[in-house]
Design a protein around this nucleic acid. Structure first.
Lengths: 220, 220
DNA sequence: TACTACCTGTGAAATATTTCACAGCAGAAT
DNA sequence: ATTCTGCTGTGAAATATTTCACAGGTAGTA
């Protein structure tokens, strides 16, 4: 058995997107898909798609392309959880609730099991099946619910401290929507999703494309 | 004068982060910064940081490093708007409101000028200074307010159609939080931010890091 | 002035990622 | 059975991105 090293992050991201796309595409009419078609849908090149599937060891047929059901299974095996992984949301303001709204129920194995906040008003309220606890209870609840991931949707002032508490309780990976650079131990994974930076990024492209007759005019 | 071609996307992202970091770092004590220090804060290597600044033509001093104020200006000149750019939010549910909450007021030149929804309950309400209009008015409002960018926070069912209406009205770039692959003309820029994919991504790392004594065990 | 320490800017090397291009296969058609 | 078509898998090339490593600069110190 070949024990390959880990999948490159970019490949991982594409695989997740293929998986999601394929689930939508699959129906009795469409049991198979060829790389060119998937390319049209996702925007990645056919060659890249084939290479990505190669990287997880899935082979298609030269006549019908890839069998969608098997392909999804292969992606699952390579990069999706085999057992439940539980999530906490820190900060149960508008964004925290939006995240719960958005995530909860969309995955069978990834579940939000608790929310944390320090506003007494919010404690013990249940939203979409998620109970909010006081941040003092992080240690206890994280261990009790076996939570290994957290989504931060907090005001920046508290984010660092609360993230550190979560790490100490056993959280290994963060999705950080708070506009702050977290300073956490090396072994913790952090994915930053600052909305303002995202808007600034698209603003750059909106400008480049504004009057552009061609696409290359980043700096003038 | 050298008219370089456009900045690579990854460099752009880092520059935006430097800019934000530097703004926080700047105070009477810290007028200058060296690449090593900025590396400690941002996690990018000193060589990369120097090269990024090189790419926008900003030079530091070999004695004191980079003068923060000038550096921020140089980044502004290279990648930030020189005049106002207006934004619309499509879908004024929990996520749409969270986005407005988060963005509005954090940038002087990027402003959310309108929201769209088709729930009659929401029309004409004003939230953080942003009025919600019916989606039928997209064409009119986008042109009136000179909006070139849109943030999509809609249920997937409507997203494609509304995005297309926005494009027809003149929107050039999208930040898409709806879990859907948009099919829009080539010249439109789309930045996808599906939250579920983001969670699945961190879940992958949470697993790899769970019991790992070393960091390379993506597939076992 | 001379020496030290530490920094930037950058060519060149290293690495990572994507694309090219084609051999080889499998079903369809005749 | 043979030919045709269109697809996958993949070595090799191309491209993009990051790091190395060091020349050269500037301030501080004696």
């Amino acid at each position: 058995m070949i024990v390959t090293s880990s999948i490159p992050v970019k490949t991982l991201e594409r695989l997740l997107l293929y998986r999601w796309t394929l689930k939508n595409y699959l129906d009795p009419e469409n049991t198979h898909i060829v790389s060119r078609r998937l390319s049209e849908i996702t925007g990645f090149s056919p060659a890249q798609i084939r290479r990505d599937f190669m990287s997880i060891g899935y082979s298609g047929s030269s006549a019908h392309g890839y069998k969608i059901k098997d392909l999804i299974n292969a992606i699952d095996k390579a990069i999706c959880p085999h057992s439940a992984q539980n999530i906490a949301v820190a900060g149960i303001g508008q964004l925290g609730k939006a995240v719960i709204n958005y995530i909860q129920g969309r995955s069978t194995l990834l579940k939000i099991k608790a929310a944390f906040d320090n506003d007494p008003e919010k404690i013990n309220k249940v939203f979409h099946g998620v109970r909010t606890y006081h941040t003092d209870e992080i240690e206890k609840i994280i261990r009790k619910e076996d939570i290994s991931m957290a989504i931060l949707a907090l005001p920046p002032a508290n984010a660092q401290e609360i993230a550190m508490n979560l790490v100490n309780a056993g959280v290994k990976a963060f999705l950080n929507y708070s506009p702050i650079k977290l300073n956490l131990p090396e072994h913790v994974y952090i994915e930053n999703r600052d909305m303002l930076l995202a808007v600034e990024k698209i603003a750059y492209f909106a400008r480049s494309l504004k009057k552009g007759t061609d696409e290359n005019e980043g700096i003038s």
